[in-house]
Design a protein around this nucleic acid. Structure first.
Lengths: 104, 104
DNA sequence: ACATTAGGTGACCAAAAGGTCACATGTCTA
DNA sequence: TAGACATGTGACCTTTTGGTCACCTAATGT
């Protein structure tokens, strides 16, 4: 699961699924190959890893396979190293950072 | 930063620092080598990676170096793939899961 | 002062991961 | 039913990563 997050291509795939779920392998391949040089097989392999890690869930629809982002494992990572008390401070910090970046 | 999270030894180090911060390399070496076979150099290398990734911050105290966990990058990972709306649902799920596990 | 203790550096080797290809399976549609 | 389409599998190669070792620097305390 952590190893699944370690690769930039896989993070790009998660970003794409975060933006819009229910995508097929073909669509995701298109998303990836815009920025990187990679064959369909590479993308499929990455998706397989993400699915095994539980970060992506799939449903079969005829001959195509639809992919969705599963946020639960990510939340568990969060909870592993950020307790409720710390969360209060840290969200204040990151929210402040976001506000500053939005208004230049 | 994501690659830093991908190794089990490094996650063990983060767990140790989450439990109690301000530890020296020697202490952390002791923590690790209880469970795994590893030399001091291996631990030092992992700590170096964690520090470069911003997950661990250090302060020098005489001849020893104290290590602390930095939760900010982890929160940013969380915010990358969990929006405010989803967070509400997902925290409900994980909190429920935690309650069920606490009371067997 | 000097042995001891805490930590750092660069080279090196074995193991694992990323990527591609030839080939295979199942599904839709004309 | 034939052919195009969407995806899956296993072997193979290259690059990256985890780990150790020999050696080095700097602070401590008696």
């Amino acid at each position: 699961m952590f190893k699944a997050l370690a690769d930039p291509t896989r993070r790009l795939l998660l970003d794409a699924l975060f933006d819009k779920g229910g995508r097929t392998l073909g669509e995701l391949e298109a998303v990836v190959t815009v920025r990187q040089e990679m064959t369909r097989f590479g993308v499929a392999k990455h998706l397989r890893l993400l699915e095994d890690a539980g970060l992506v869930v799939t449903e079969k629809k005829g001959r195509e396979k639809l992919h969705h982002l599963n946020p639960v494992p990510i939340r568990l990572v969060h909870d592993r190293w950020i307790d409720k008390f710390t969360e209060h401070h840290v969200t204040a910090l990151t929210d402040l950072k976001r506000q500053l970046e939005e208004k230049p």
